[in-house]
């Protein structure tokens, strides 16, 4: 039983946390790709930017002596999302829109997004320094819920932290809201139409400039959520999300670039693959030692991939997808 609890703590919960973050990031990447047809490389840094904005707001509220029963970063999240969305619009207007107006190729926009990456990273470090910070305001602590499992014969509890719990709820709400937006609202449908066939969308009289703006607003807001959650789960640092740009893109590509639902599935897929690959199976299989013959105990560490190489997992899945099904696993399905 304890082995199962360990598995739940280490794989199920961690995987879901990571999956939520990847999924929210990948949705942004995939929407931008669907509408604007370029790989927005600076997306990770938009996440970082969003996290720092939430951090600033939380610190400001805390400094005013306001307290909440929830982590402050979550309380300020709606405001931070709005600010990040506005900044995302500004980034598009300042750096990408002029190139699009010139008819630049997607790869030029990709390179431009490196410029944006550098500027955001430079600015963040310039303002906040390159150190690591805690996302919790002073006096706050990570509450941990311990679900007692003794009724099932377990000696250890299932651990889940407060931010993790909130994270699941927030992600679920966002995914559902996005679903309704894309399938029910006029603008959401227009977004899907433009991702499907931009020329025809224009011919239909769809205000494509408006759709582009909506895309940046959604991508920016979701990036802010993902970045803040990541910072709450780990810590806040300038290269917070740059390091997960690869799994995020892998998630978007595995799900099929341009497909919002694919990005969600891709995010969880990559996250669980990573978590399972670095999971130490000995911890779960230890009871086998009792039945294994003498001298054949399981090694102390039996993980498929050493933790240092976690990144390779996303990469391997990415490459396999690109080689076998470059259009993603959902090609043919209608989204």
């Amino acid at each position: 039983m304890d082995e199962l609890i360990f598995f739940i703590n280490r794989v199920l919960i961690s995987g879901t946390v990571l999956g939520s973050i990847y999924a929210l990031g990948a949705i942004g990447v995939t929407l931008i790709f669907g509408i604007l047809r370029f790989a927005h490389f600076a997306h990770g840094d938009m996440m970082t930017m969003g996290a720092f904005i939430a951090f600033l707001l939380a610190a400001a509220l805390a400094a005013m002596g306001i307290t909440f029963p929830l982590p402050m970063a979550f309380v300020v999240l709606p405001v931070a999302m709005v600010i990040t969305a506005i900044l995302a619009l500004g980034i598009d207007k300042g750096f990408y829109a002029p190139l699009r107006a010139r008819g630049a190729k997607p790869v030029t926009l990709l390179i431009a997004s490196i410029g944006v990456t550098l500027m955001i990273q430079g600015l963040v470090r310039l303002i906040f320094g390159s150190g690591t910070r805690q996302m919790y305001v002073p006096g706050e602590s990570k509450d941990i819920f311990r679900i007692d499992m003794s009724w099932a014969g377990g000696s250890r509890p299932i651990n889940i932290t407060e931010p993790q719990l909130i994270m699941f709820v927030v992600t679920a709400i966002i995914v559902i809201a996005l679903h309704f937006f894309l399938t029910r609202s006029r603008l959401g449908k227009a977004m899907r139409a433009m991702a499907d066939n931009a020329d025809l969308a224009q011919v239909s009289g769809i205000n494509t400039a408006l759709v582009v703006r909506v895309t940046w607003v959604i991508a920016g807001a979701l990036a802010c959520v993902a970045g803040t959650m990541l910072a709450l789960d780990v810590a806040l640092m300038p290269d917070l999300a740059f390091n997960i740009v690869l799994p995020i893109f892998a998630a978007a590509i595995v799900g099929g670039l341009g497909h919002a639902y694919g990005a969600i599935v891709g995010g969880f897929l990559i996250a669980f693959a990573e978590t399972l690959a670095v999971f130490n199976w000995t911890a779960v299989l230890r009871p086998l030692n009792n039945i294994l013959p003498e001298g054949m105990e399981l090694p102390a560490n039996l993980s498929l991939v050493p933790t240092e190489y976690k990144l390779t997992v996303a990469f391997v899945i990415l490459v396999i997808t690109l080689l076998m099904r470059p259009t993603g696993i959902f090609k043919g399905a209608s989204t």
Partner: peptide, 8 residues
């Protein structure tokens, strides 16, 4: 050509 939104 391409005068419908195929995925919709």
């Amino acid at each position: 050509e391409k005068n419908v939104f195929t995925s919709m």
